[in-house]
Simulated assay, not measured.
Amino acid sequence: MTKLDDWYDHPQYFDMVFRDETPAEVAFFKEAFDRYCDAPVQRLVEPGCGSGRLVAALAGEGYQCCGLDLSEPMLRYLRSRLRRRGLAAEVIQGDMIDMPVGDQIFDAAFCTFNTFRHLSNDDDAVKHLRRVADHVRTGGLYLLGFHIIPMDADPECTERWQASAGGTKVHVTLKVIDFDRKQRRETLRVSIKATRRSGAVHRVRSEFPLRLYTASQTKRLLAKVADVWTIREIFDFDYDIDSPRKFDDDLTDALFVLQRTGD
């Protein structure tokens, strides 16, 4: 029997898709903290933490972590993961625009793999960046990663990949089903076929819009928050701390190291 539903309600599949990236991301984060922060980094927050793979991994490295997400299934999965590993982290259900973390101040924040692009307009993006700044100390960092769409991007892009864990194999297809450069929106369809050890098949599908950014649009956005964030360096998703990138039209997989400026 097959079932078709939303992948955000099935964190185990969501997690399998991205887990191979975790070691490289964690290693890069630690190097960036050492290289760009003017004081030791201990307290971290991830807006839009999803299944919490990075929160759990960094908690396992000894950091005090806070994960924030709207999806209760994702947060339940994160809480269960932390219990299984004997780890502690704060888990909050809430919107990354408002950042409902009380009066906490963190040494650094991070948000990677296009979560930022779920913010559908510049007003929400600017509000988010300012709210994160409210909760990061002066000199602290925001590691912000998302895809920048070149002007010659193929609007009919389809990607496929596979992952497996615990006897379950997943086949993932990511397809752009609508691309509107004028409205700065692309709609993605993610389809997952999960085959369990028993042979049972579970099908999951989600469709959601993401905000489009060119390099020049990204520059204009970050200029609006230049009073609270300065760009210390830019990298791509290779996570090579010794290979920074230029902020030009060739930049597509962008990871910005933003530093909190003084008040």
Rank of each mutant, 00 (worst) to 15 (best):
D69F: 04
R181N: 11
D69R: 00
F146W: 03
L255Y: 00
G102W: 11
M74F: 09
K169Q: 08
D15P: 06
A165C: 07
E61V: 10
G48M: 02
W7D: 04
N114M: 08
G145P: 05
E90R: 11
H118L: 15
R181S: 14
S71N: 00
H118A: 09
P47H: 04
T168E: 15
R203N: 08
M96E: 01
M1T: 15
I149M: 10
R130A: 02
R79Y: 01
L255E: 03
G48L: 01
R35G: 05
L141E: 10
L70R: 01
A89E: 04
V257N: 03
K246P: 08
E61T: 11
S216H: 13
A24Q: 13
T168H: 07
L255R: 03
R220C: 11
S216I: 13
P40S: 14
Q259D: 09
F208Q: 02
L119N: 00
R79E: 14
K246T: 13
G50H: 00
D15N: 11
L210C: 06
E46R: 08
D9R: 06
M96H: 01
W229Y: 12
V26K: 01
A194W: 00
A32Y: 00
H118Y: 15
G94M: 03
F113T: 07
G94A: 04
Q93M: 08
R232M: 09
D134K: 10
K175Y: 01
Y213Q: 02
C157N: 12
L54N: 09
P150W: 07
I97W: 02
V170E: 05
D15C: 09
E156Q: 10
D124N: 07
C49V: 04
A165L: 11
E25N: 12
K30I: 14
V132F: 05
D250W: 14
